[in-house]
Amino acid sequence: MSTSLTVTNLCKQFEHRVVLRNVSFSVANGHALVVTGPNGSGKTTLMRILSGLMLPTSGAASLEIDGTVVDFDERRREVGFVTPEVHVYPELTPVENLKFFHTVRGLEWDEAEAAHWLRRVGLDARRDDPVGNFSSGMKQRVKLICALAHHPSLLLLDEPGANLDERGRESLSGMVEIQRKRGMTIIATNDPKELTLGDEIVALRA
């Protein structure tokens, strides 16, 4: 399967404030791109546009799979998105969260695969505890597996290392490597350790 993302002259303006101005880049299958820039440069806005949660003021971000441009609804299901602003359900356990997001995406639930993901991020011992009782680092791990478990074509990671300890960061690197075999990854970060996860860097200006 061949996937690619092409961003062309993307602009985003909130009333009189221009957040993104003529941003262009492309990412090919198996590649990881890092987006950096100072606070307020529009990294999160760019990620929200790429996820399909937000529309650009002008320009386009087209996701192609096997030569076909994926429409808005389909793109939302082709994307895994981790950002500090989007959370999983605190009343549900990690397994319940995984199962819920799998089911609403219309995918078959696989208990063994869920167990595999929980082991991978070191949460198998806490599989029956509500996520609300977890530390912020453990919540971040749950968010990561919920974004990756449906095998997205495009994985968007906005400050993915936030709250993660060394083991969590190792899991994160492993997940980016897994994603290279399946599709594309875009990481928005200013963390020097995460800059090394990408093949290319796009720097946004404030």
């Binding site: 996820s51 939302r76 998105f81 602003e85 959370h87």
Partner: peptide
């Protein structure tokens, strides 16, 4: 309030 609305928008019809 709990920041899950966007997760639902991203995943569910």
């Amino acid at each position: 309030e709990s920041g899950t609305a966007d997760a639902l928008r991203l995943t569910a019809p």
